[in-house]
Design a protein around this nucleic acid. Structure first.
Lengths: 200, 200
DNA sequence: CAGTAAGTTTTAGTTATGCTAAAAAATGGC
DNA sequence: GCCATTTTTTAGCATAACTAAAACTTACTG
């Protein structure tokens, strides 16, 4: 992989070993005991922790389990950022054609996952059902909307909320005759900061 | 790995392929283009997506990058779940001693990362500055609060919001004489549903 | 429907590396 | 100093990660 240009910045790999070691130490365990409970050899643990070798996903899974952690705990890199937005000075997006508008609440920083918008949904408009990665949460600031997840229909009124796995087929619409304001929050990149999803 | 008792439940592996495929489809990409940008072969992509083979961490990293996603997005087992909460019927927590109260908005499903609460913050109360993994977002439903991130102080009023990396040292308090209601949303497990990390 | 182009699956093969076992080297009481 | 424990190093094997190319699908186009 080293000769492969596209992987030049080898992201997580550099941190993986040390992270595993830190975790093991935090639990006060010896390489031997971890090796045993993960079904691997001591020497190998040593190699992995020092980044001399990368474990297979299977081994990493065993390791994580032995360390009572989640695989993903070892594969992320931290970063710092923060941003506030204020009611009056918020930039509003409108999709041409539709009369929905969005106010963006979240910033983008390397590896940020959380995104949030206030959506002003006009009466009647109905979006295509979709499914994709991530999770979402709606909180109704004003008005009412109907949410359909798989075959489950729910009416949310002011102050209500819903939280679901985006892999379920979902859609929502404003069934009333007045505009609704929704605070949407999720792990899905709705802004297309990352090169945007192309739908046919 | 098959003979290894401790890995019996081979967790993520089973879902990894499909997850990658879902993501690729969501982006409207072809195996060829993904293969190219990840520096891998088409056939291999096919094998991986159908779970016939497991990619190495390095390849998985390239893949994730090509799919504009984070490795960890693919290593969690998806599960289907959704839950709505309604204003009147929401369970309210109160921490004994303090007079803050919380209304929980999110559900827990395996590997869910998104958590959300409505926090009713009484005047004056001030929490310890902390830093930890994850991201957070506040939205002020009612009242006002002061948020301090690193050395940056911000006053948020009704309708304002803030989004930040939890690794920055942060704290917030209600500087007014009236109660404030905050919608808090983040990737941090504030409920302690997941087995908690062991400190020291 | 034939013709072809784009996408995906299959197959067969090689190379690389994930991983082990065992020996060497630290580390650290007593 | 020595012995017990933990970690590092080395050498080597076998698995499976990965490729290239051919076969199969699907869908469009005149």
């Amino acid at each position: 992989m080293l000769k492969n240009g596209s992987t030049a910045r080898t992201p997580a790999a550099l941190e993986l070993g040390p992270a595993l070691r830190t975790r093991r130490k935090a639990l006060g365990l010896t390489m031997q005991s971890v090796a045993d409970s993960a079904g691997l050899s001591v020497g190998f643990i040593s190699q992995v922790e020092r980044g001399l070798t990368a474990p297979s996903l299977a081994s990493l899974a065993s390791l994580a389990e032995a360390l009572h952690a989640d695989i993903s705990d070892f594969l992320q890199q931290p970063f710092a950022f923060s941003q506030a937005t204020h009611t009056n000075s918020r930039h509003t997006y409108s999709v041409t054609g539709a009369d929905v508008s969005y106010e963006r609440l979240t910033a983008v920083f390397p590896n940020s996952h959380l995104h949030s918008v206030i959506v002003h949904e006009p009466p009647g408009r109905r979006a295509e059902p979709v499914r994709h990665h991530g999770e979402e949460m709606f909180y109704v600031i004003d008005g009412e909307i109907t949410v359909e997840i798989d075959d489950n229909v729910d009416v949310l009124r002011k102050g209500d909320s819903i939280h679901f796995d985006s892999q379920r087929i979902h859609t929502a619409w404003n069934h009333t005759t007045q505009s609704a304001s929704i605070l949407w929050c999720g792990t899905v990149d709705v802004f297309g900061d990352a090169p945007s999803p192309i739908h046919r």
